[in-house]
Amino acid sequence: MTRLGLYIQKVTILMALVILMVPLVSHAAEVHWVEPELKNYKQMIVPYKDGSSMKGPITREEWNSFYFYVLNPARYDEPIDIGNWATMIKMGVQLPQGKEDDLIKGYVYDLAPMYAQHLNRETAVGGLIKLLTFSIVQGSGNNKQLDASKDFMDFKDVKEMHQGLVQTAYQDGLLDSATTTHFRPKDNLTNAEAISIMARVMSKYEEEASKITPPSQPGFPSVVTLFENTPMFSSMDASKGMNGMISPQDVRIVAVQEDWLSYDHVTDKKWFQVATWLGPQWIQLELQQVGNFEQVDTSLLLQQSTSLQDSPHPDSTLSLVLSPQKVHVIGLFRSKFAERFLIETWVGPRWIRNPNGAS
């Protein structure tokens, strides 16, 4: 073989190797560092999917923006829009009932310059920790061995007003997993970083609550679905003030007041101790509220006119009535007193009595 032929052969082999390697490199590039946390985060925000009015304080429009921008793999490394950050906080942070909008305005929107679309990392983390002091953060981190001022080479660049808040977030394990040696306080928070942070916020105290073992007691309800923000207390005494709010979700009951099974009416209130991010806390529920919700996907034939309800509990009938027809059932609530179906209607999801079963 001539020298020219040998050269051409080598070039051909080299080009073939390059072509074979391209798909491997492209495939590796598809795996983003936030993907492992994103899988868990998506599971935790299922109750808010599509902006369901029953399961959360966000609108369908807010959900759509969050879904198409924050959860879009092509946008993971783009700065998160301030409105989408607010949406993530609504889904992941427990705030006092009736004060949610004011608090988000004060610790999200008002912290950014006027007309700003994004938040830098120190501002986003600082505002988040302030909001978490209403529920899961007590003002100082748990892991005293972690020192942000020593571990982050650029900690001196964090504004003094945010330094203590960043330190608390670091000690509580609430910073994004990509933060190791540098905090980068002036960089805009990205979609991926926001996902990582909120996944940690939503899972940290859930893990603590899961360590509590409920007592063994006949007729004892183990899980109850809350459909509205519910105050929680350190004891069975509401006069001492609440410790925070539990947003609509499934909660695990670990204790009940002794006479919880005695009642005159289904609207009688009883005390239930539930597992929370703060440890066991007491909530008051009407007996008719003690039940479980599950998502379903089926059809039901209504053979007579049926009243719509705005909640699964008795005494909540609206002035709207469905004529006999086939309906799409998307949820089911069961309690000791009733069985209710959540159906799709022209006015959004509404509840109806089980026409063939419990009242």
Rank of each mutant, 00 (worst) to 15 (best):
M1R: 07
M1I: 01
R3Q: 11
G5Y: 00
V11L: 09
V11R: 04
I13M: 01
L14G: 00
L14K: 06
A16G: 10
L17W: 04
I19P: 02
M21N: 10
M21A: 11
H27W: 11
A29P: 03
L38V: 10
N40L: 09
Q43D: 07
G51W: 00
S53R: 06
T59I: 01
E61L: 03
F68D: 08
F68Y: 10
L71P: 05
N72C: 12
N72L: 12
A74N: 15
R75L: 14
Y76C: 08
D77W: 07
E78D: 15
P79N: 14
I80F: 10
D81Y: 14
D81P: 02
T87L: 10
I89G: 02
M91D: 00
Q97K: 07
G98D: 04
G98H: 03
K99S: 04
D101K: 07
D102L: 12
D102F: 06
G106Y: 03
M114I: 07
H118P: 10
L119E: 13
N120H: 14
T123K: 13
L131C: 05
L132T: 11
G141L: 04
N143F: 03
Q145P: 01
D147A: 11
D147M: 11
D151G: 11
D151K: 11
D157M: 14
V158A: 06
L165M: 08
V166P: 03
A169I: 06
Q171M: 04
D172V: 00
A178Q: 05
T181F: 04
F183A: 07
P185D: 01
P185C: 08
P185E: 09
N188T: 03
T190N: 08
N191Q: 05
A192T: 04
E193T: 00
S196T: 05
S196P: 02
A199H: 15
R200A: 03
S203K: 09
E207D: 12
A209T: 02
S210P: 00
T213V: 15
P215G: 08
Q217Y: 05
V223E: 01
S234C: 02
M236L: 06
D237K: 11
D237M: 05
A238Y: 07
M242D: 08
N243V: 11
G244M: 02
P248S: 07
P248N: 07
V251P: 08
I253M: 10
Q257M: 08
Q257E: 15
D259M: 09
T267A: 11
F272S: 06
W277T: 01
Q281T: 04
L285R: 10
V290D: 10
T298A: 09
S305E: 15
D310N: 15
H313K: 09
H313E: 10
S316F: 04
S316G: 06
L320T: 13
V321S: 05
Q325R: 12
H328Q: 15
V329N: 04
I330T: 15
L332N: 09
F333M: 06
F337R: 07
I343H: 09
E344W: 05
T345F: 12
V347D: 14
R353N: 14
R353T: 14
G357Q: 13
